[in-house]
């Protein structure tokens, strides 16, 4: 396992470089930020001075070499917008998103396991129909719309929760509920699907014939096999959350990396964008490795295949 881990980490370095080079080049295709940062009536000299000050007058390969030189010294550049250290800004925003994403996923997985198993016990039964309808609806509602309706209902009409912000436990409820729906909806269907097929497997019949209780059959035999796919899909959904918390963060004023990223894209704040992308990419790569390892640990069935490869 350790060898595998080392290999995976080593083989992630190049793709990470590719991500950064891609972001670097693409960001610079979106135009010189001078107009955004200079007064509207800035003269050409002021524009040139701005470009020179920020190294934007150099050819792209030179800029890139400079940047990677800086990265090696852990210097990720300065934000054009705030004048602060880009890496510091990204590192400050990241935990907020991570907490949101992690809490959301833990809740989504727990809820989905309960609902999914419940549905799988009687395929096509009432519980199954209801839960699949609810989960599909949950997965197909536009998140920003849900967030705004949520604020309207729970913060304004009922007054139970704060509208937005990060102060107090109540402020977590709406963002998490908004983020939760899609992963929950998808996971319920995954858990249900794999439980249904797991419950009709011969080894379940065997377990039953040996007189195992239904609870033991479900939790010990079936769920163990059904959990592996749920875990991997959950991993992919987490990647989506880390990248896609933008909408929720924008609406609720959550100071996370998604908001930072969209702001720095729209404001052409290249250094911050690169730092934020690099950080999320590292997190996503790490998560992918963890998922694969978790999958191998959970699902004994893949181990023989592992040996073969």
């Amino acid at each position: 396992m350790l060898i595998y881990l080392r290999k995976r980490i080593a083989s992630s370095a190049l793709p990470l470089m590719v991500v950064i080079v891609g972001v670097f080049a693409l960001a610079r295709m979106t135009g010189n930020p001078a107009s955004l940062y200079l007064p509207l009536n800035a003269t050409q000299q002021m524009r040139d001075a701005f470009s020179a000050r920020n190294g934007l007058d150099q050819p792209l390969p030179v800029q890139m070499a400079d940047y990677f030189g800086g990265v090696l010294r852990l210097d990720f550049g300065q934000s054009l917008r705030t004048g602060q250290d880009a890496a510091a800004m990204a590192l400050r925003a990241f935990p907020a998103t991570l907490q949101l994403a992690a809490t959301t996923m833990v809740l989504a997985i727990l809820l989905a396991l309960v609902v999914g198993c419940w549905a799988a016990l009687k395929p096509n039964g009432i519980a199954d129909r209801i839960s699949s309808f609810v989960s599909m609806a949950a997965a197909s509602i536009p998140d920003f719309w849900l967030a705004i309706v949520g604020i309207w209902v729970f913060a304004i009409t009922l007054g139970w929760l704060p509208t937005s912000g990060v102060s107090g436990a109540g402020a977590w409820v709406l963002p998490i509920a908004t983020l939760l729906l899609r992963p929950f909806g998808v996971l319920v269907q995954i858990v249900r699907g794999s439980m249904v097929s797991a419950l009709s497997e011969p080894y379940i019949k065997l377990a039953r014939s040996r007189g195992a209780g239904e609870l033991r059959v479900v939790t010990h035999h079936a769920l163990r096999n059904a959990a592996a796919p749920a875990l991997t899909v959950a991993g992919d959904l987490t990647v989506g959350l880390v990248n896609g918390a933008v909408v929720v963060e924008t609406i609720f004023g959550w100071p996370g990396i998604g908001k930072l990223m969209i702001d720095s894209i729209l404001q052409r704040d290249f250094a911050v964008l690169q730092a934020a992308v690099l950080l999320t990419a590292v997190a996503i790569f790490a998560l992918n490795i963890l998922i694969d390892m978790g999958y191998a640990l959970l699902d004994a069935r893949v181990r023989p295949v592992t040996v073969k490869a």
Binding site: A198, G235, A296
Partner: peptide
């Protein structure tokens, strides 16, 4: 080696794959 680990992961992307994957 790594690939076989993700293999199962990717197959599990969707419930559809599972019945087929499980039954030979």
């Amino acid at each position: 080696m790594k690939s076989s680990l993700t293999e199962g992961a990717a197959r599990a992307q969707l419930p559809a794959a599972l019945p087929e994957g499980n039954s030979d």
